[in-house]
Each structure stands twice: as structure tokens, then as C-alpha cells.
Design a protein around this nucleic acid. Sequence first.
DNA 1: ATCAATGCAAATAATTTGCAAAAAG
DNA 2: CTTTTTGCAAATTATTTGCATTGAT
Lengths: 157, 157
Amino acid sequence: MADVDKKCVRQRFLDFLARKSLRLTGPRRAIIEAVFNTGKHFTADELLKWARRRDKSVSRATVYRTLPLLTESGLVSELDFGKDHKIYDPNYAEHPHHNHIICQDCGKIVEFESQKIEHLEDEISRQLGFSPRAHRLQITATCEEFRKLGACSKKED
Amino acid sequence: MADVDKKCVRQRFLDFLARKSLRLTGPRRAIIEAVFNTGKHFTADELLKWARRRDKSVSRATVYRTLPLLTESGLVSELDFGKDHKIYDPNYAEHPHHNHIICQDCGKIVEFESQKIEHLEDEISRQLGFSPRAHRLQITATCEEFRKLGACSKKED
DNA sequence: ATCAATGCAAATAATTTGCAAAAAG
DNA sequence: CTTTTTGCAAATTATTTGCATTGAT
């Protein structure tokens, strides 16, 4: 993601705040910077850590109060992989229809899009009497590289 | 689902218990009956309620300790719709590859299968260097019937 | 008898909330 | 100044766990 895009998305969120007459405070600024300077998925706890690097005083409560604003703005989406915590995805604005592959070996989350799958989803939904509004497709997989080499170059952290 | 199937699935779970030398106790029996006598998705709390109809003494802890056995057996699957609780699906054994449509209007969850989508999922996974192990596809939709008539005959409870 | 399974109550852990103080517009 | 936002600590809620007791094999 180019720096222009990051700036653009951040600006769109600032506009969102302005539109709702919400105030741009120090803690909020730190959280926003943290969110839109990463391309990675993150948890509430990670976001708190990142935000505190910019402003030591940011509280956990403020992070939890800001996350709903981010998802409401449509610029971040909430993921759920069955863990006890939610994962947030800052890549929603650029690719609103993307899906996820979660690697069982390295934990990495890879994103992909498919017009074909989406078209089939629409078709089936209609047949069943529904109008699709959103979809979530998650594939759990093992990594071929890991199977062959016993290690995975995609491994994070 | 025919009664034969229910009996069959229940029997498969009893076999699973035997294979692992796990004991068939009263509370477990009540929980098993409750699970395999419904075709509906359920929460831990609902299962507790149903099991207690059969055996008043069943404790919440036992329900929570039995659920992992059910999923481990492969006869029930765990769903996650981003709510604060998990939902369990007793229809896994018959249709291990099914997907879900969640109606925003009436809350109903409809199941469907699609070979075509699954084939595309496999293809894309391979292209990205993965071997797919499991997949979860959830479509959130609105109900056409509701849109036209202002009411939804699928509405549950 | 032996060891797994239970109920109970207390413990977890992520998230939410009440409230008085601080800061934005 | 007025209203929103904050940090703190306490509350919430689904789920898990320690432990003494019960029950299946």
C-alpha cells in the first residue's frame, strides 16, 4: 500500500469524525496513526501498545471506544477467527470484498479476492430468497512450503 | 433429517466415546440426547436448558466440558458469527461442507452447499501455496419476503 | 477398587461502563 | 462555557478450572 493511500485513508477517517462532530483528541490521534500506519491485522491489545508508543497516556478504554468508530466508518473491518479476541483489518477500504486464508503452520493471514466466488454467492443467495449484503469467507490451510521444507518463510514475528 | 439419521449420529458419538474410553454418564446422556434430537443451531446456554429438561442436575460446567468432545468427534461444528458466544451446528456429520446464510431480518440461519465455490476455493488456495483444510463461508443477507411483505415467514421462535 | 466425571464456586480474560476530571470547539 | 472525551476502576459475560465428591467400569 503506497503512502498516498495511507494518508488518504487516514484523511477519510478524519472526515468521518468531522461529519459526526466528533473531536480529534490526542489519544484518538495516536490510535488513528497507529491503525493507518500498519497494513497488518491487529488485536485491540496490539493497537493499545502501538498507540502508547505515540502517546504514553492512551488508555485501554479509549482504544475500545475508538474501535467501533473505525468499523462504523467502513475503513476497518472486524474479523473473527474463533479466538477469544477480535482481529481488526485495516485493509477494508481498498479491498472491501476480500477473503482470508489462515495458515495453520505459521499463523499468517493472506488476503485474496475472487469475482467468481462472489458471483456464485450472489446467485445462490437469490435462489434461496435472499439479497446478499455481506460475506465472509475464511479458508484454513496448511502451507506447502512448510510441508516440504519444515519451515515457513511467511512466518510472522 | 430422518429419525434413522439421528439415531445413527448419536450412535456414532457413543462409539467415539467408547473408542476414547470415555464413560457414558447420566449428564452426558442427557446432553447427547438434547444435541442429536434437534436439527437447529444452538448455544451452550440453550443446550444446558435442553439437557436439564432431561436431567435436572446437569451443570453448566458439564455442558462446557462436553462441547469439545462433540466437536472433536466431528459430528458437531462450532460456528462463530461475531457474537459474544459460540453457536454449535449439529448438522455437520451429514453435510460437512455446508455454508451459512444469516438473515438480517429474521435471524434465521440457512445452510447450503456449493461444489463450484469449493472448487474455486481449492484452486485459489493452491495458487497461493496452500493446501486447504477447512473453510467457512458466511453470507449476511436480507430476506426478499420481508422486503416485499414486511414480515418473514422464516422467523424463528 | 480405580480413575474418570461431576457440581459447585471461584478464576479468567476480553470487553464495557459509571463517573468525576480534563480538554476540545 | 458547553459538551465530548478521557482514565480509572469496577462491572459484565462467556467460558474455564480447582477441588472434594460421586459414579461408571
